[in-house]
Design a protein around this nucleic acid. Sequence first.
DNA 1: ATAAAACCTACAAATTATATAGAGTAAATG
DNA 2: CATTTACTCTATATAATTTGTAGGTTTTAT
Lengths: 138, 138
Amino acid sequence: MLSKKTKYAFHALTYLGKNKDQGAILISEISEKHNISHKFLENILLELKKAGFLGSKKGKGGGYYLIKEPREIPLSRIIRLLDGPIALLPCVSLNYYEPCEECENQEQCGLNKVMIEVRDETLKILEMKTLQDILSNE
Amino acid sequence: MLSKKTKYAFHALTYLGKNKDQGAILISEISEKHNISHKFLENILLELKKAGFLGSKKGKGGGYYLIKEPREIPLSRIIRLLDGPIALLPCVSLNYYEPCEECENQEQCGLNKVMIEVRDETLKILEMKTLQDILSNE
DNA sequence: ATAAAACCTACAAATTATATAGAGTAAATG
DNA sequence: CATTTACTCTATATAATTTGTAGGTTTTAT
């Protein structure tokens, strides 16, 4: 399951996507519409900004706004950013690889092999689906 | 990512699958081969037994053994048993459904719609791949 | 009877996720 | 230029979950 952090990130991105032409949007506005703790959401939006998805403006009239096209934001990027690996095991993760402690020889591990296939199939979906798909469904 | 519990379960099932014709196998044997805490593994094997995947024999000469065909144990069943939902959101889980707290109207939620598609694609893989596939790769 | 090994319940420790606090910085405005 | 607004940053607190441990109970073979 996704963490709340990631789920909230999707809600926020969706909201910003829907209101793309309204300029900067307040954290408060998003947090109220989606019943998300203001401060918690603050951290999330900041991460999304640092990762290059959002822009922001400080001071009165400030807020956040999308700086990428929704179709250029695949689910995989958001999930990786906030939740970490998409792979089911550390030993098959592309972005967060770590060997499994209990495994003496990864090369001979059948679980490893199968999980690579699962990862590849999962990635196909999560890289294909984008924020645009979420927006199209609202 | 899978929990260690689920990962260990797969290791244990694989070990039991490989040694299918050796009769009952000790928890200790599996825990030593895979560097898994004996007591922790005990709990896991018990769950697998209660769920109908394993049989056991108590007392001297006892141990655990597979009572299902490896090809009849899809990854999805083990993951669901030990880790819970496969879906990325509670509101799209088939076996552990819960509405999202922050969501006023699930019917109008684009994230919900997209995550249903992701779930269906993920399930395709996890229901197709079985313990047999792991065994074939060792 | 004894030893071996699964079974069971409860708890402890560690880790991670979620949320909050409070001061700092930048921008707008009158 | 003072004030208000709202994002930025770091640190910490709280809660939940995962991981692991303890210790006894039951069953079985010899």
